[in-house]
């Protein structure tokens, strides 16, 4: 059953080259999309988008990865990012982005500070605490 589900992806990634696409084949929107598939693969190169550099991303995200993890993650992340790339081929010029579900309008409360009742429990959860500070190792290296 797993391979069957994968067809859903193949429909737009691999099989699209043959002009067959899951779910989009009957719409002109889809045809337009499929027609551009060949170019999508090179989109990141043409547009100057670098492929993911896992070590650099890990440093940005502050996650120390082992060499084995870098080796394991790199092809998987590359594969998913390539798959993300299909959106580059869709004409979205005139479309406004939606930042949320938009089921309801803005509903923001006043930005006023208030006291959280169980503050002591929060403090108790801090792994390294010296009244009244949260303790961390030094922030700067000597060099």
């Amino acid at each position: 059953m797993g391979s069957r589900a994968l067809l859903l992806l193949r429909g737009i990634t691999i099989r699209a080259d043959h002009g067959i696409s899951f779910s989009l084949q009957r719409s002109s929107f889809g045809k337009d999309f499929i027609g551009k598939r060949r170019r999508v693969r090179n989109y990141s190169i043409r547009s100057g988008l670098e492929p993911p550099d896992v070590l650099r991303l890990a440093e940005t995200a502050r996650i120390s990865l082992t060499p084995d993890e870098v080796e394991e993650f790199a092809p998987k992340i590359q594969k998913v990012v390539d798959w993300f790339g299909q959106l580059q081929a869709v004409d979205l010029q005139s479309i406004e982005p939606a930042i949320r579900a938009d089921t309801e309008g803005d509903n923001l409360r006043d930005d006023l500070p208030e006291t959280f009742e169980n503050g002591q429990a929060m403090i108790a959860a801090v792994p390294s605490y010296e009244e009244p500070y949260i303790k961390v190792p030094k922030v700067l290296n000597k060099e």
């Binding site: 993911p52 991303l57 995200a61 996650i63 992340i77």
Partner: peptide
């Protein structure tokens, strides 16, 4: 997290995150 970090990287935001919001 790493994929999201990539999609939100400087200069890539329009290509990924914003396009996804348009979709």
């Amino acid at each position: 997290i790493l994929m999201g970090t990539y999609a939100l990287s400087a200069g890539y935001y329009d290509a990924y995150y914003k396009r996804a919001q348009k979709v």
